[in-house]
Amino acid sequence: MPTARSTPPDQPPVHFQHEGILSPGQIAAARLSRGGPVLGYFQPVEIKAPLGVSVALAEGAQFGPLQPAPVRVGLLIGPVYRLRVTNIPRHPGEEVYPTIEVIDRLYTPMGQEARFAIPIQLHQEDLELALEGKLVTRVIYVEDPQRALPVAAEAINGENWFEVGPGRDPLAVADQLGRPVAIVRLGGRVPLDPEHPEPEFMGPPAPYERLPARMRVLQPPPRKPAAAKEAGR
């Protein structure tokens, strides 16, 4: 019986026949060519950033309104989405323009799509490296539960990540650790005029879905024991 990992040899279920340094959009385009229910699907994505950071997505030839992070949107698999990140802590007046390329989707049970979104974490260190002129490539993957580290999510600040050196391919490493679903690239060129960026910088326009902000149900305060309550009376 075929399993989730067994596909014809000519189409292995991995991405590392490509390189992570390919131009933005090429890896997602290859994923579309492999078929499956990925065409036209808006994959929920949650863009997280340090407190105070505002994010805007490209809407046509301009950026949309700035929204405080985290921002939840539905992105298509294939296009490259350009972001505008401002209000970076300790860097007033500076901006970073990362790109997000969704290369695979989640198969969330019906009704839970918006709850389980792909987290796009814009770390403070990554933003500062981009401001210094470095190119930061971050490949987000779904962990294999059989090989997941037995650590709580709070202990790793909500995300477990690894660093690879310049000589290695981050996409290949992510493929070994799980299933890559998105690529974030920070650094690189900036628009000549942020208010009116040139079309070459923005790239082809791509639609996205605006999703409502995440609501977290808070736990009720602990109830006092009945004995203490009686004693208080």
Partner: peptide, 20 residues
């Protein structure tokens, strides 16, 4: 549960490949 792999590289080395 999600994880990520990060690579930091010099922009000059990738300038030709990362061009739009």
């Amino acid at each position: 549960r999600f994880g990520s792999v990060r690579q930091v590289s010099n922009l000059v080395a990738n300038e030709g490949r990362e061009g739009w």
